[in-house]
Amino acid sequence: MIHALDFMLLLLLVIIALIAISLKDILGAVIVLGAYSLIMALAWLEMNAPDVAFTEAAVGAGVTSFLFISALSKTKRWEK
C-alpha cells in the first residue's frame, strides 16, 4: 500500500535478522527474534492479512520466545 512504510519495514526486517544471526549471546538473539516477529506482524498487517499478523504476534513473539528460552536454559548462554 504505502511504499515508504513497506520499504522501511522490510529494511528493518533484514537488519534485525542480520543482528540475530551475528550475535554471540544466544539469549539476546532470542529477544531480537521476538522483535523480528513484531516487525513481521506489522508487515503482515500492512499487507492486509490481519489473521496472519495475529498469529505471528501471538506465536512468533510470545510462545516461540518462551520455547527458545526454556530450551536455552538447559544449555549454555554464550556461543563459542
Binding site: P50, D51, A53, F54, T55, A58, V59, G62, V63
Partner: peptide
Amino acid sequence: PGGGFQGGVILGT
C-alpha cells in the same frame, strides 16, 4: 480477524 487458534494461543500465553 482471529479465531480458535489465535485465541487459544493467547489463553495459553
